[in-house]
Write a protein that binds this DNA or RNA. Structure first.
Ligand SMILES: [Mn+2]
Ligand SMILES: [Mn+2]
Ligand SMILES: [Zn+2]
Ligand SMILES: [Zn+2]
Lengths: 136, 136
DNA sequence: TTATTAAAAGAGAATAATTATCTTTGCAGA
DNA sequence: TCTGCAAAGATAATTATTCTCTTTTAATAA
C-alpha cells in the first residue's frame, strides 16, 4: 500500500483532500472503474465533490503516473491504480476487466522480442489484452 | 481483397452504395482511421454523405464482424479492416497505430496458455498491445 | 500564527463524439 | 412495375469530457 500523500509530494503536487479521496476511490472501486463508478464511491464520504474536479484530478494523476488509463473499445474511460506491469482479462459478455500478472509469460515474451526485433520499431513495453469468459 | 458486396450479402445485409463506400474508406485510410478520417476520405467521392450514416454503418459493420474497433486510451474511436489475428504497435509520441503480425509469437503464446491455464477464465483470444517508437 | 500566494476546487457553460428520432429514399423480392 | 422494409439523411439529443471563471485552500515564510 503506497502513501498517496507521499506520492503526491514527490511529484511536486499539492496534497488535497479531493486528490487523496479520488485516488482512494480508484483503489477501492477495484477492477478498472469508470468515472461514474469513481464519483459514486467518492460521493459517499464526499457528497459535494464537483464532477469537473474528478476529471481534472484523474488527468493530473494519470499524467503524473500515479494512475493509468485502461484502453478499451467502449465509449467510457476506465482507470487503473495498479502501476506494476500486468495484463488484462476482458470479459466478452460483460464490461468486467481483471488484472492478470504472469512473470513467466513476461519473461517468455521479452526473451522473444530480444531475439526477434520488429523492424522500424523500438519496443518500450507490451501488454496482453486477453478476451474470454470468466467461469464458475 | 474481399468482396464487400458478397460479404454484406452473406450477413443478410442490404448492399448499399454508402455501406460499400464506408467499408472501402476504412480500407483505404489504412492504419486504423478515426471516424473523421473516414468521413474525409469518403467525402471525396461522396460529398453529401451524412455523418450519422457513417456512424450507423460503422456500427453495423462492426457488429457483423466486417470491421473491428481498435481499443485505445484516447477519446476517439478507431477502426480496423484487418480481421485476421494480429497485434498492434502504438507510437508513444503520436497517434500512429500499425499492425503487427507474427505467427511465431502467436504459436509461442498459445502454447504457453495451453499449458498454463488462467484460473476462472476461459481464453478465447489474445492480442498484444505493443508501445514504443517508430524509428528512421 | 498569520499573511501571502500560487495552485486547486467548484460551478456551470462549452465542446466533441456518438447515438437517437423522425422523415424520406431506394434496394430487392414479388 | 409495385410494394414494403430497411437504410439514408437531417437534425436533435445525449453522453463524456474539457474549459473558463470565481472562490477556496494548502504550503511556505514572516
Ligand atoms: Mn472512448
Ligand atoms: Mn465522448
Ligand atoms: Zn489493471
Ligand atoms: Zn490492426
Amino acid at each position: 500500500m503506497i502513501s498517496i500523500h507521499k506520492a503526491l509530494k514527490e511529484k511536486g503536487l499539492k496534497v488535497t483532500p479531493q486528490r487523496v479521496a479520488i485516488y482512494k476511490a480508484v483503489v477501492d472501486c477495484k477492477n478498472h472503474p469508470t468515472v461514474e463508478n469513481i464519483i459514486d464511491t467518492i460521493k459517499m464520504e464526499y457528497p459535494s465533490i464537483s464532477v469537473g474536479t474528478v476529471y481534472k484530478v484523474l488527468n493530473v494523476l494519470v499524467s503524473n503516473d500515479l494512475l493509468r488509463k485502461v484502453e478499451s473499445e467502449k465509449e467510457v474511460m476506465r482507470y487503473d491504480a495498479v502501476l506494476e506491469h500486468h495484463h488484462h482479462l476482458f470479459c466478452m459478455d460483460t464490461d468486467r476487466i481483471e488484472d492478470y500478472e504472469d512473470k513467466e509469460l513476461d519473461i517468455l515474451v521479452a526473451a522473444y522480442f530480444k531475439k526477434k526485433e520488429i523492424k522500424n520499431f523500438k519496443i518500450e513495453n507490451f501488454k496482453l489484452h486477453i478476451t474470454g469468459k470468466f467461469i464458475k
